[in-house]
Write a protein that binds this DNA or RNA. Structure first.
Length: 113
DNA sequence: GGTCTGACCGGCG
DNA sequence: ACGCCGGCCAGAC
């Protein structure tokens, strides 16, 4: 794993960042991707989430698309798991969309500095 | 080993 | 303002 720095996949970075997301906060795939330096590869972030939530404990429900829409809710154990968890953490969700998404937005480049 | 898709984003018509 | 298309990386068939 530590053989080469190149071996380091940004997938692991995604897991780390997502796990650092405070409870009751949300972010977008593009934001994480941008924070990792691969803003163009926002798709990979979502892809990483797929593998992440299946293998590791990653709050993928706190990660949404730039619209604040629960795009990946259909990939959870249940279609309502994502929304249910968000509401459980105090995040209001309406019509598969996070209310005050802009306000609850969590920017790693700012929060983590 | 080549091809396609995928939980996205940004730009252009 | 809405809709379409291209791009990036990695995994699956």
């Amino acid at each position: 794993m530590k053989k080469n720095e190149k071996s380091y996949s940004f997938f692991d970075d995604v897991f780390e960042v997502v796990k650092l997301i405070p409870k009751g906060r949300v972010t977008s795939y593009g934001t994480i991707a941008k924070y990792l330096g691969t803003k163009m590869s926002a798709r990979m972030v979502g892809w990483a989430m797929n593998a992440a939530h299946t293998h590791t404990k990653v709050p993928a429900h706190r990660v949404l698309n730039r619209n604040g829409l629960l795009t990946g809710k259909h990939h959870f154990e249940t279609p309502t798991a994502m929304q249910d968890r968000l509401e459980k953490e105090g995040v209001k969700v309406e019509n598969d969309q996070v209310v005050e998404f802009k306000k609850l937005f969590w920017d790693p480049s700012i929060e983590l500095f």
